[in-house]
Structure formats: structure tokens, C-alpha cells
Write a protein that binds this DNA or RNA. Structure first.
Length: 588
RNA sequence: GCGCCCGUAGCUCAGCUUGGAUAGAGCACCUGACUUCUAAUCAGGUGGUCGCAGGUUCAAAUCCUGCCGGGCGUGCCA
């Protein structure tokens, strides 16, 4: 029997008992889990019934428990205080869950809560004047995991990258390269393209202090770019091309994927028509000097320092657009182009105010989809020495970090392989998977809104609440399943009624809860929920593994039953890791 | 000033949406377990006024109000 059917049966039976005893349909009841597995597999609280039937909840629990007859799946219902603790027959519980999980395979944990809704997840949004850093990694793994969570719960997801490819900061690296580059390229210097361009940006920043006239040069270049000067555009395309080449490598290593790219060079003029529309509707107003502003409601935005209403500029007095102007246009374009039902922006919390404004402005313009825009805000990643500041060079470069994690994992693997059995290729493959697991898990395991104070020591740890720990639990399962193939068990049937010790019960519960966790994680856009539950599954697997032999269990039917449990556990861990963008390894 | 976010063990966090069984992990520290399916593991121990004060409730880490501490922002930058 499917586990969902068992859950439904419990609630149905309790409701029926209430009707018999009190002659009334009870308020909707909640199915939970007792704090210890020894108490039962499921629990129903009787507090709501106490209110409804005006009786002591413990008394009600007792009466109901006495009323319920055991069934094919329900072994017993016991009242413990105000709780109805339900024990399911072990053969039904373990057999049902293991069977269900194995049959679902990749669709494990899927749900249709999305009902095909079209959702855009915009994330990463890099600048093309410097390489990616640690903050981008947090953004990237968040965006990817949220996308996968939505996909797995029945949404059609469009992953978008809004590339900031224009502006004065881009001109700085262009100018520096023109002045001092002497025609060098990423190819001639053997430098990754984004780092190559980033180096010229740094070079500019260094020279800026001594040569204030450089500033004029970049402004001049920006004007040329905007007027479409062919040579400037050519240089711009050349250098951006280098950056994209470099980015592509990093995306690949991090497993970041995109279905749509937006470039600010295309979008920066969008939105002016919407401003006009807003003026006509009376939503926005024009000031004396020709700028266009919107007045923000005090109840949502508070007041300015002097107590007056807050105001947002939408169009400069010279008629040119600002950040929010183009974002208004881009927001509409996204909905028009992709028939979106929902639009999610994965952007750091320092832009909370910007998105609050943006969404309010869309609302003021009367777009009915405005409430479907959501800013998935995440906290900054600080270093031990403080904030990351690219201008001061206090950043952790994404490629450097990836390389460092890889090296650490490789060292660890070599230490464990003193006999030197592993090929270089195998070591590299494992080291990469383990290193990336460590960093991704480290960034995803806390709620997005929390600031992370990057602790290098903790981030590279492979023990405890980490990605490699979870990978290891999977590898152990895989090892058992591999060895089982060499045993002759084909003719034996699993006897699930032989399962039921504490560790097995804890494990099966963790597996049962997995689909619920995936739904909650998708609903809350919170990968941390997946991390936490994945860790619980891995932990219970390790406890079970340590205490109860699988392949040398007392009887063949027990071996088969435990193998099924191991198989189901492996499937859940694999799916959970996949949602987090972490590879599984058959051996570690 | 105003807005948003955070405050739970020495450190990093979970639990808060939807109030409910003795508040859970990891790290660190101490003790123990590899001739046994991988010790990147497991078992045990030490460690908590859930920021403070009120309120709602049979019941509050969880909901409400006020305060304190920290972070991020706060109209022609992105």
C-alpha cells in the first residue's frame, strides 16, 4: 500500500471514530510524527477535538483509541496523553515505502503543486568587467537549487541571466587595455578571459588615483559607446567575448545553467514607455526640472528623515533612464515573452529596497501580474576580515576557491589511498565532486536571508553537517548494493515484517518525510530545508549501517528486506543531492 | 528618523509559516569503538535565562506589542 494511502486511512479512521462517538465530523486533523519512533509511526493531536467536543483531550484520545479497530495496515492506535499514536504493521510500512521509492526513481519527491505554472528564476546577473567571486557562488547555487525545486514540484522553469554588460565600469577595463594592453589577449597570455579583463579593471583602479584625467577618458568612451561608435563597439564586443568565455568555464564547473540571457545593453532603454503610461494614468508625476518621480505610500515605505513621503526617481531630468526604469521594462518583457505566471529574482539583500520599489511601481502601473514578482533575497557572504570589497581586492575569487577545494579533496583522497590503487583520473573525478559538494552544501545549508561569515576552516570541512558526509552515506549504500549482486538472492523474497528496530524505524521515517520536505522547500524557496533533511537521512543511514549488518543478517528474507531499505535510502540521498546540484559517488 | 532582515549551547546553525510530548544538530573539548557491508563513520559525556519586558492561550523559541543589540538600505549609482 502506498504511504499516502496509509496516511489518508489514518485520518479517515479517526474521523469515522469521531462521528461514531460524538455524532459530528471533526475539524480537519493534522497528521504528525511522535518525537520518538518507539511511540509510533504517526500521531494525531487531539487538541482541536477538545475544543470542538468540549472534553479533555486526553480523554478524547483514549475514547477514540478504544474505538479504532486494527486493519491490514494499522497495527494499533494508542492514546498517550492528548496524542493518538499510530503504529503501522512493519510489513506494510517498510514494504510500502521501499516499493514506492524504488518505483518512483527520478520522480522521487515530485509533486504537482506547481501545476505547470511558468516561473522565471533570474539569478547570477554578473558584471562583465571582472571574474565571479564567492558571492556569485552563493547566488548561483541558490538560483540553481531553487530552479530544481520548482521543476521537481511541477513548475515549468525558465532560468535567466541578466548580464550587466554596459556602463562606466566596463569602460574602465576597456580603457586600461587600450592604454597598456599592447594587443595582448587571453590566448597570448594564457589567462582565463574573465580574469584577463578583470586584471585591466584592477589596473585602471590603481592608476586612477595618480591620473585623475582617466575619469574623463571613460566618460568619453561611454559617450562613444552610447552613440554607437563602431570602433568602441568592436572593442566592447571583443572584451565581453573574452569574459563570456571565462564565465562559461566557471558556470560549467558550478553546474549553472541558463535558458535565457538578457543583456543590459539591450534592456537599458526599456521602460520609458511605461513611465509615459504611468504619467498618463496619473500614477507618476513630472517635477519642475523635467524628471519623473513616483510617490511611495508611507504605510509600506515609511518616511524620509524629515518626515515627508518617500519618492523614487524614474527618469532623470535629462530624460535618460535609471536602474529602476529598465527593470520596469524588463519585468514586463519577461512576462510578455515567456507567458510567465511568476517571476523570481535571486538578488542580494542589499537590493531589498530596490525590489520593494520595483514591485510597487509595477502595481501602480496596474499590471495584474505585479503580485507574482518575488525577490528571493539572500544575505551577504563576509570574510573573516570583514566585507568583501572588489575595489580593495578583498574578495574570494570563484575559480580560486573551486581549485582550492579540489586540491584539499584530492589530498584527502590520496591519504586514504596509500596503496595507490586509484588512477589519477579517478582521483580527480572524486576530488572535484567532493570539493564542490563541500562548498555548495556550506553555502546552502543556512537560510538564504542569513549573512554568512565565511569560515574557511568550516567551509572545507568534510565531517559532520557537510556535503561529503552525505555523499559518504550514499557511497556506503552503493557499496552494499554492489556486493549484494554477487550473492545468490534472486529466489528469496524480502520479509519486511522482520524490520522494525529503532534504527530502521528512524530511517524509514526520514524517507517518508522526504517528499514533504521537498514541497516545503519549494514553497519557501529554501534549499536549506533540503540540506537539513538530507543530513538527517544520511545520519540515520550511518547509524543503521553501524549497528545492523545487511549482507550478513540472520536470514535471507531479512537480508533482502534490509537491501530494499538501503536501496530506497540511496535513492533518496541521490535525489536530495541532485536537487542541491551535488554529484553522487559510487565509491569514496 | 524611517523601512526590511537577524538575535536559540563557547562557535555555526535547525526548529518559527500551521503554538503542543523532556528545545535539536554539527564544530570544538573529554571518553570509547576498526581481524567485522568503506572510521570522510559510530556510541557516550560536557554545554541552553531560546536578546529583554509585557500580552494572548489550557499550552509560547513559535502569535501580538514595546524595548535592546547587530546587519542592509533609505529619489535623478547599479
Amino acid at each position: 500500500m502506498l504511504i499516502t494511502n496509509i496516511k489518508t486511512e489514518i485520518l479517515t479512521v479517526v474521523a469515522a471514530a469521531c462521528r461514531n462517538l460524538f455524532g459530528l465530523q471533526p475539524e480537519p486533523l493534522k497528521l504528525g510524527y511522535p518525537p520518538q519512533v518507539e511511540l509510533g509511526d504517526f500521531t494525531v493531536e487531539c487538541f482541536p477535538l477538545a475544543k470542538q467536543f468540549r472534553q479533555n483531550p486526553a480523554k478524547i484520545a483514549q475514547t477514540i483509541a478504544a474505538e479504532i479497530e486494527p486493519s491490514e495496515s494499522i497495527q494499533s492506535v494508542r492514546a498517550v496523553g492528548p496524542y493518538l499514536n499510530v503504529k503501522i504493521h512493519n510489513h506494510a510500512l517498510f514494504g510500502g515505502v521501499c516499493d514506492e521509492i524504488v518505483r518512483q526513481k527520478e520522480s522521487l519527491g515530485n509533486a504537482d503543486r506547481g501545476q505547470g505554472q511558468r516561473v522565471m528564476v533570474e539569478y547570477l546577473s554578473p558584471n562583465t568587467n571582472k571574474p565571479l567571486h564567492l558571492g556569485h557562488i552563493r547566488n548561483g547555487v541558490l538560483g540553481m537549487t531553487v530552479s530544481k525545486l520548482l521543476e521537481t514540484t511541477g513548475h515549468t522553469v525558465i532560468k535567466a541571466n541578466l548580464v550587466n554588460d554596459r556602463g562606466v565600469h566596463i569602460c574602465k577595463s576597456m580603457l586600461a587595455w587600450l592604454k597598456w594592453g599592447e594587443g595582448r589577449t587571453p590566448e597570448t597570455t594564457g589567462t582565463k578571459g574573465d580574469h584577463f579583463v578583470g586584471d585591466w579593471y584592477v589596473r585602471y583602479a590603481q592608476a586612477e588615483n595618480q591620473q585623475p584625467d582617466l575619469e574623463q577618458g571613460t566618460q568619453e568612451m561611454l559617450r562613444k559607446w552610447e552613440s554607437g561608435d563602431p570602433e568602441t563597439l568592436k572593442l566592447w564586443e571583443l572584451m565581453n567575448g573574452w569574459v563570456y568565455g571565462g564565465f562559461a568555464e566557471t558556470y560549467q564547473k558550478l553546474g549553472l545553467e541558463f535558458d535565457a540571457f538578457y543583456y543590459e545593453s539591450h534592456t537599458y532603454n526599456l521602460g520609458k514607455d511605461l513611465i509615459q503610461m504611468g504619467l498618463e494614468k496619473g500614477a507618476f508625476v513630472e517635477t519642475e526640472d523635467g524628471a519623473v518621480i513616483a510617490k511611495l505610500p508611507v504605510n509600506e515605505f515609511g518616511t524620509q528623515r524629515d518626515g515627508s513621503q518617500k519618492v523614487e526617481t524614474l527618469l532623470r531630468s535629462d530624460g535618460t533612464s535609471v536602474y529602476v526604469t529598465q527593470d520596469l521594462g524588463t519585468a514586463k518583457m519577461k512576462f510578455d515573452e515567456h507567458q510567465l505566471d511568476r517571476s523570481i529574482y535571486v538578488v542580494g539583500s542589499e537590493q531589498n529596497y530596490h525590489f520593494q520599489c520595483l514591485f510597487k511601481l509595477l502595481d501602480m502601473l496596474g499590471f495584474e501580474w505585479a503580485p507574482e514578482c518575488y525577490h528571493l533575497s539572500y544575505g551577504m557572504v563576509n570574510l573573516p576580515e570583514g566585507k568583501m570589497k572588489s575595489r580593495e581586492g578583498t574578495v574570494i575569487d570563484a575559480d580560486d576557491l573551486i581549485e582550492e577545494m579540489f586540491q584539499l579533496a584530492a589530498d584527502e583522497i590520496w591519504q586514504r589511498d596509500s596503496a595507490g590503487r586509484l588512477s589519477d583520473e579517478e582521483v580527480q573525478k572524486r576530488a572535484f565532486a567532493i570539493g564542490m559538494a563541500a562548498i555548495k552544501f556550506y553555502l546552502l545549508r543556512v537560510r538564504p536571508e542569513l549573512t554568512i561569515n565565511f569560515d574557511p576552516k568550516e567551509s572545507i570541512s568534510f565531517d559532520g553537517f557537510t556535503g561529503p558526509y552525505c555523499q559518504y552515506a550514499y557511497a556506503r549504500c552503493a557499496s552494499i548494493l554492489r556486493r549484494a549482486q554477487t550473492q545468490d538472492l534472486a529466489s528469496v523474497d524480502a520479509d519486511f515484517s522482520l524490520l522494525g528496530n529503532k534504527e530502521e524505524l528512524q530511517l524509514i521515517r526520514a524517507l517518508i518525510q522526504f517528499p514533504e520536505v521537498v514541497e516545503e522547500a519549494a514553497r519557501d524557496l529554501s534549499p536549506a530545508r533540503v540540506c537539513n533533511h538530507l543530513f538527517i537521512v544520511a545520519q540515520t543511514v550511518n547509524q543503521f549501517y553501524h549497528k545492523h549488518p545487511v549482507l550478513s543478517a540472520e536470514s535471507s528474507p531479512l537480508i533482502k528486506a534490509r537491501l530494499a531499505l538501503v536501496n530506497a535510502s540511496a535513492a533518496v540521498i541521490k535525489k536530495a543531492l541532485a536537487l542541491l546540484g551535488i554529484e553522487t559517488l559510487e565509491e569514496m
